[in-house]
């Protein structure tokens, strides 16, 4: 009975609202739907959203591996504090992150003033979207890798080294293959989060149509113009991407589960 009640709650709070968006998107006829989701402005926003989310997730995959490695393998003073602070992007409200990043990277900001003489402008540019998504995505990679690194059997590395492998070869042939599923999962999670991120991005992005406008912002713009059908159509596109990513992440997770269970 408790299962039934909780499923009812889940249905009311989550599933019912979700199905309405899909139905609402479906009420548009084909050509109107297509016009809403394939307008040049929408295409530009997809390109920016996907591109920035992909690049940010890629950077986080590399740096997240480094961070996780250091936090698990190398003791240093303050390690527990640093470890706790890695979760900051999870805990800090996105609006707070957004205004902080916008101020940091503004031409007269703490970081921006060093970039400005080099001719690099981040705030109010597409690069700002990337910076915000880097902030948001890091914990996904680190927290997925950490438990796997902790479980990694040192005997494997030792035997590789005893058998004459260099450290580089050991990393490439022993450690990296063991970490790969978790690394890919973390990458996919950071990417998926980046696709839908809104709060931290809009403060720093500048939000110029065709140039620095992300897909979720375009949805909000359509809503503010009372173009509900257009907003729902765009939402259907983003939702289907999210579901594809969810499937990808789930299969990656079961892949890594089977991988780690076999050893």
């Amino acid at each position: 009975m408790i299962l039934g009640l909780t499923m009812m709650y889940l249905g009311l709070v989550v599933l019912l609202p979700l199905s309405t968006a899909i139905l609402k998107g479906a009420t548009l006829d084909g050509s109107a739907f297509w016009a809403a989701v394939a307008s040049p402005r929408a295409i530009a926003s997809y390109k920016l959203t996907f591109g920035a989310a992909f690049l940010a997730a890629a950077l986080n995959a590399v740096m997240g591996l480094l961070v996780a490695w250091v936090l698990v393998r190398i003791p240093f003073p303050g390690r527990r504090l640093v470890d706790a602070l890695v979760d900051l992007p999870f805990a800090l409200p996105t609006a707070v992150a957004g205004i902080a990043l916008a101020q940091l990277y503004a031409p007269d900001g703490w970081i921006g003033r060093f970039l400005a003489p080099l001719g690099i402008q981040v705030a109010y540019q597409p690069a700002g979207v990337f910076v915000a998504l880097v902030f948001i995505g890091l914990p996904f990679v680190v927290r997925t890798l950490q438990p796997v690194l902790e479980e990694l059997d040192p005997a494997l590395e030792e035997s590789a080294i005893c058998l004459g492998a260099s450290r580089g070869v050991t990393f490439a042939k022993v450690i990296f293959p063991a970490l790969a599923p978790a690394l890919l999962t973390g990458f996919a999670m950071a990417f998926a989060r980046g696709l839908g991120e809104y709060g931290s991005v809009i403060f720093i992005a500048g939000n110029l149509p065709m140039k620095s406008e992300i897909a979720s912002l375009l949805i909000v713009t359509r809503l503010e113009q009372y173009d509900y059908a257009g907003a729902a159509a765009l939402a259907t596109v983003l939702l289907s991407m999210s579901f594809i990513m969810l499937l990808v992440i789930n299969s990656l997770q079961s892949w890594s589960r089977s991988r780690y269970a076999n050893r």
């Binding site: 609202p17 968006a21 839908g196 809104y198 979720s216 949805i219 729902a232 939402a235 983003l238 969810l246």
Partner: peptide, 11 residues
């Protein structure tokens, strides 16, 4: 996995 903006839009 749903964008927060879409969550608001649903309602």
């Amino acid at each position: 996995s749903v964008s927060p903006v879409i969550a608001g839009l649903l309602f």
